[in-house]
Design a protein around this nucleic acid. Structure first.
Length: 307
DNA sequence: GGCCGTCAAGACGAT
DNA sequence: ATCGTCTTGACGGCC
């Protein structure tokens, strides 16, 4: 029986957060911070409940859930203040076998030329790690990043990434970090170069792969990326799925699920699962969020797809 | 109450 | 040189 999970990122458009989910830096105060975090954590639990009711067992937690967590302005020991609530959320996730992940934004550049940027990037990664640790989640709860800049010398840039990963990060963070192929600089093959130096599992973004690849067949790409998840504690290999937004520039994510494209890809995923005997978790990076996730689940459970 | 310029942070290609 | 994009829109000043 297939145990593939379908997920969506960061926000739910059906159950909107009624209270402010963040604030501007100049509005920072301990009071504002605590109110916002409290609200965000409660809202996360609401989303996870919504997901469970709808058979969605994969979710990407927004990096903004603890606003300014890695900024010097934040001196609240939030993992202590919200200890009980964080454990409650973690218990819910663990009890229901939910997969969660996080995706720090573009400012995390582990291979930057600037020491300060590397330092700030690590602070940001440590925040993500601390949040998942505070929920007592296993290392299958991943933190997903891109390789970073190229700086005119990709070979050196990849080496810098691997060196900084190996030398500068603590073990608990290393165990959570995964690297994703992007749509213009670092292909799946580039990620394998990183993997051979670091053992970091690869999140395979199928849409980015359509934009940037090394002419391997899709089935080759799928069955090879699965091999980067060789540690059982890493959980199922993760795929980011999207498709081209029609009429927009190349690389723009679709506004809603492209049914035919998804069915085609889903059958490719199933072939890989049959071949490797390893389940996959699929994150749908589509603008209408849970609506597409629900549609995908509906199609999976209907006669659209045959054995 | 709704509009819209701007928001902590980097890199890169397009214009 | 400035803008849009990636990530996830949404805060908040202003009318």
């Amino acid at each position: 029986m297939l145990k593939m999970r379908i997920g969506y990122p960061c926000i739910n458009l059906t159950i909107k957060n009624q209270s402010p989910s963040t604030f501007r830096l100049k509005s920072y105060s301990e009071k504002r911070f605590n109110e916002t975090v409290k609200n965000n954590l409660n809202h996360l639990l609401s989303i996870l409940n919504f997901n469970k009711r709808n058979n969605i067992y994969f979710f990407r937690i927004s990096s903004d859930i603890i606003p300014f967590a890695s900024h010097p302005v934040c001196d609240v020991d939030w993992s202590e203040v919200f200890k009980v609530k964080l454990k409650e959320i973690g218990d819910f996730i663990n009890k229901n076998n939910i997969r969660v992940s996080m995706h720090p934004d573009q400012f995390v550049i582990l291979n930057s030329k600037s020491e300060d940027i590397v330092k700030n990037s690590i602070r940001e990664l440590q925040y993500h790690c601390k949040l998942l640790d505070s929920m007592r989640l296993s290392s299958s709860a991943k933190i997903q990043i891109h390789v970073g800049g190229v700086y005119g010398d990709k070979k050196k840039a990849k080496k810098d990434f691997a060196n900084n990963f190996n030398k500068l990060l603590e073990e608990s963070l290393k165990r959570r970090l995964v690297v994703e192929n992007d749509d213009r600089s670092y292909s799946l093959q580039d990620c394998f170069d990183i993997n051979s130096e670091t053992d970091i599992p690869i999140v395979f973004d199928t849409f980015h792969h359509e934009c940037l690849n090394n002419d391997e067949t899709f089935q080759q790409a799928l069955s090879s990326f699965v091999k980067s998840w060789n540690n059982p504690t890493d959980g199922n290999p993760v795929i980011d799925y999207s498709s081209q937004s029609i009429g927009d520039r190349k690389g723009k994510h679709a506004k809603t699920l492209d049914k035919n494209h998804f069915i085609y890809m889903y059958n490719e995923f199933r072939n890989t699962i049959k071949k490797t005997q390893i389940d996959l978790d699929i994150m749908l990076e589509i603008k209408d969020k849970e609506e597409s996730a629900l549609l995908a689940l509906k199609m999976i459970n209907s006669s659209y797809i045959f054995d």
